[in-house]
Nucleic acid binder design. Structure first.
Lengths: 250, 250
DNA sequence: TCGGTTCTAGAACAGTGTTCGTGACTACGA
DNA sequence: TCGTAGTCACGAACACTGTTCTAGAACCGA
């Protein structure tokens, strides 16, 4: 079924009416629901990235006007939260294993980053957002269990959930920004820093050695490693640090 | 000296001209410079926060139009970077002390956060930005020296600079967002989470215990502590973790 | 059927960063 | 000194953002 569109002009005393075929087939008009809005957001984000998800683009995707969305969601921020809940539901936290709790934690953080990579830019919405979605809460529950299996104190476990989430989302946001700047990298892949690293290294090496002896002599080390290397280092620091300070928070 | 403004209307065949006094005294027209732009940005941010710094608000502050700024800066992003450079110059890193290298690192991170707190919202611009300003480079040099004094490997030291900066700016961004949401907290102060924590705690306690045994029973621990407590935990984890994994990165 | 409520959606608001085009000014070379 | 090219200043306009207001349509229950 093709929906008709009417177009009209004023030509002197005459009003000209033309009935034009619609741009695209319009099925039976379906009522909006929150689920449909989130589906549209997920679809748009998969196709064009997080930045392309606006109230207008959502409305267009749903064949309506942006104002219609506000009957179902309070704000764009709520859409963002719903999207994050949807994404968070994809994360699976394994049952705790006391002999490998630390590797399990590291793997959860890797899985988190991978999740954000699969939904480019979505980490931006995660920053500053209170984790109240089911996905986030389940992840939290799983991480607490793993920490318990590793003998970590409850207070340290609790605060580690925040710390880890903040770190991973910060890295994911940085990666998303770099991907945008470096359009040669396919969405979802590890950003390619090669050209950027070379420039940064050259800049560091060109600084006055009297003022920056360490930065200039270590430009290579400063710019070594790709995103995964750096993330692995961060994850190793976080998990080892957790084990080291746990007793101070009992 | 008061600058005149002309205002005109069309009234039938007549054009009415009125000369009005200017809104405010306009001194001798001063040429724009990058420094003046950054000064204006710093002033606006101090008064109204980072979000209030737009090309239009800057132009207004400088008594010109937004398009004029583009003769001196390439983009808003460049303004952001210049502002961050200005801010970064405020950070002082102490000379290294081998006996207290760890506390020195922790103090640098605290000072970083304090800096961002003094410039609310500015951390947003820091995320994803390559640290090429003099302030950032000096901080890096200082941190490398402190890590050296503590016997940390060069590679671990190098990557720690990134990790620490990412963590601090993520926390600063979160705080800035919370400050915006909780308008009762004065700019620059530690955000007050009391009401929010209560709500979050109640939510956690209300979850189904069968599915969330740890979250529900530990709602109190999960929501304990203020921003500084959590930040101190994070800093302790980072520094202890660095010491623990350093040898693996030699 | 009728009335109240909710939904839909266009128009408009207030704002964002940026580009385009024009006039004024400045610097430089003949 | 004059002419020309380059730079700066800046209004108008572009394309976009999230959101509100208002009117008509749709839905639902009595």
């Amino acid at each position: 079924m093709v929906e008709k569109r009417e177009k009209s002009w004023q030509a002197g005393p005459l009003r000209i009416r033309v009935t034009l075929p619609g741009d695209e087939p319009a099925g039976p008009k379906e009522r909006l629901t929150v689920d449909r809005i989130v589906d549209a957001a997920m679809s748009l984000m998969a196709e064009k990235g997080y930045d392309a998800v606006s109230m207008r683009s959502l409305a267009k995707e749903l064949g309506t006007g942006p104002a219609s969305l506000y009957a179902h969601v309070a704000s764009k921020e709520e859409v963002d939260q719903l999207v994050l809940d949807r994404i968070g539901a994809e994360l699976h936290v394994p049952a705790p294993d006391a002999d490998h709790w630390d590797e399990q934690l590291r793997q959860v953080l890797r899985d988190m980053l991978a999740l954000y990579r699969r939904h480019p830019g979505s980490a931006r919405a995660a920053i500053g957002m209170i984790p109240t979605g089911m996905g986030a809460l389940r992840t939290m529950e799983g991480m607490l269990a793993i920490c318990d299996a590793g003998g970590i104190s409850p207070q340290a476990s609790a605060w580690f959930c925040d710390l880890a989430a903040a770190y991973v989302s910060a890295i994911a946001v940085e990666e998303a920004i770099w991907v945008q700047r470096d359009n040669t990298t396919a969405s979802g892949d590890d950003p390619d820093h090669t050209a950027l690293d070379e420039q940064l290294r050259a800049l560091m090496e060109s600084l006055p050695a009297a003022e920056f002896p360490l930065v200039t002599s270590r430009a290579g080390v400063m710019t070594a490693g790709d995103g995964d290397d750096r993330f692995e280092f961060g994850v190793a620091v976080l998990v080892a640090g957790l084990a080291a300070v746990s007793e101070k928070y009992r």
